[in-house]
Design a binder for these strands. Structure first.
Lengths: 151, 151
DNA sequence: TGCCAGTAGTTGTTCCTGCAACGACCATGC
DNA sequence: GCATGGTCGTTGCAGGAACAACTACTGGCA
């Protein structure tokens, strides 16, 4: 017989869906309004800036920003047109390409980060007690890990 | 000065994004593969079935499934073509329309529900302790409530 | 009664995404 | 050397979503 989640956990799942939708929507709008920057662009800039030398292989960047390879190709196209990233051939793998953060991209991230972090605090973090944050981190990291390793 | 979330809460936010993406993607694929039903369709069927008489105003349904009004119009178009819902004029408000669950829609939901619930258990609920579930529900309901009431 | 701001649902348009397919390239086998 | 299977990034294509404009209707007010 199929295992079903109990009502408490089912409600938790539903709440996760609602909270995600509400907060992502809000953060996206705020970032767009105050910095003219889509959330996906911010994510790319952030991932690149926290990578060594501000560059990342397309494949790895796609994984980091939770996008398909083709999706990332178009996204980097747009951001390259906007001058925030550029491409370079991979030094050792002839198939590969790196996306590289440009100074303009770094500047955009510096402008956007305070806005986004303030939003995360106001719309999410502020409502979590220390215990909540710990439990959430614990539980969700197990969920993510289980999905990564189809053990 | 702008308030910034501490690293622990920031990590929790990031994990929520990753868990949401991973689990929604997985659940959607499983439902599509085993029942030929997109996740959004399931959500519509579920909301309708839990409404009195299996009918809901378009506006309310749109809110319930976290979609824009225009998005819901097209979605109901597709589902109506598939015979799972139908529209009827609202009895008292000449502007309004109700989406109504058909027998076929009810049957599809009955087939899909076990699959989906099993998935929620396997990919999400199973990884939560009782305390985790309680903390998650508590915290996320506060987040959602705060977003609903711009207090 | 007639007017009119507000709301409901639909439609046109545009944007973004994933899938499938493709050429280029790597790596391992013979 | 060179075939072969696999990976990387890109592209054609189709589907789904949001925004804004539009029509139809409501409800309050003079």
């Amino acid at each position: 017989m199929p295992r079903r989640p109990d009502p408490e956990r089912l409600a938790a799942w539903r709440l996760l869906l609602e909270a995600h939708a509400a907060v992502v929507d809000r953060l996206g709008r705020e970032l767009e309004a105050e910095c003219g920057l889509p959330l996906t662009w911010y994510d790319v800039l952030l991932q690149l800036s926290s990578a060594p030398e501000g560059r990342l292989r397309m494949r790895d960047l796609a994984r980091a920003v939770l996008l398909s390879r083709s999706g990332l190709t178009r996204l980097v196209d747009r951001m390259e047109t906007a001058g925030m990233v550029c491409r370079e051939a991979h030094p050792s793998d002839g198939r590969g390409a790196n996306a590289v953060l440009t100074p303009a991209g770094r500047a955009a991230l510096r402008r956007a980060a305070p806005v986004h972090l303030r939003g995360i605090d106001a719309h999410f973090a502020r409502h979590l007690s220390d215990a909540d944050a710990a439990a959430l981190g614990d539980a969700l990291s197990r969920v993510v890990a289980a999905e990564r390793d189809p053990a």
